[in-house]
Amino acid sequence: MIGFHIKELREQRGFSLSKLAEKAGISKSYLSYIERDMQKNPSLQILSKIARPLGISVDQLVQDSIQKEIKLDQEWQLLILKAIQAGMKKEDFLEYYEYIQFKNRQKKR
């Protein structure tokens, strides 16, 4: 989840992926992997390089990411339980999730 938080901070500060990668001294592709959660465990050295141009400490970056973890309320838990009982699999959920992301990107254009 740290990657999603980094992306959120980058966008809030008005940095493109290329600009933050340049300021952090890391490759654009590596930063993209982190943001898309394909690289789940970046080193503290890399996190430090990313945090500096974002104007926060590594500790703050990590703590904020942890606090942003979604806690499911009872309604969400019940909805998920019903979906599982109806036969929904993780793959089905991921397919719907990717579709929603696609639709949201289309709306932004």
Score class of each variant (00 low, 15 high):
96 Y>C: 06
27 S>T: 14
82 K>M: 06
66 I>E: 07
47 L>P: 04
60 Q>S: 08
84 I>C: 01
104 N>F: 09
60 Q>M: 14
10 R>P: 03
96 Y>W: 06
42 P>Y: 05
49 K>T: 13
41 N>L: 07
105 R>W: 05
97 Y>N: 13
70 I>N: 05
21 A>D: 07
11 E>G: 02
58 V>H: 05
72 L>K: 10
105 R>H: 09
1 M>S: 14
45 Q>V: 14
70 I>A: 03
91 E>G: 14
27 S>P: 03
25 G>M: 06
86 A>L: 09
9 L>M: 14
90 K>D: 04
20 L>R: 02
75 E>C: 00
44 L>T: 12
19 K>C: 01
91 E>D: 15
45 Q>D: 15
41 N>V: 06
28 K>D: 06
61 L>I: 13
47 L>S: 08
25 G>P: 04
36 R>V: 01
66 I>M: 10
38 M>S: 03
44 L>M: 10
75 E>V: 00
68 K>M: 08
45 Q>R: 11
63 Q>K: 15
80 I>P: 01
18 S>Q: 09
28 K>C: 01
90 K>A: 07
68 K>N: 13
98 E>Q: 04
64 D>M: 10
67 Q>I: 09
73 D>G: 12
34 I>P: 00
4 F>R: 10
74 Q>S: 10
2 I>E: 02
4 F>P: 02
84 I>W: 08
97 Y>C: 13
53 P>C: 12
89 K>R: 13
79 L>I: 10
100 I>N: 06
45 Q>E: 15
42 P>V: 06
70 I>H: 04
6 I>K: 04
81 L>Q: 13
28 K>F: 01
56 I>P: 08
44 L>K: 14
37 D>L: 03
99 Y>I: 04
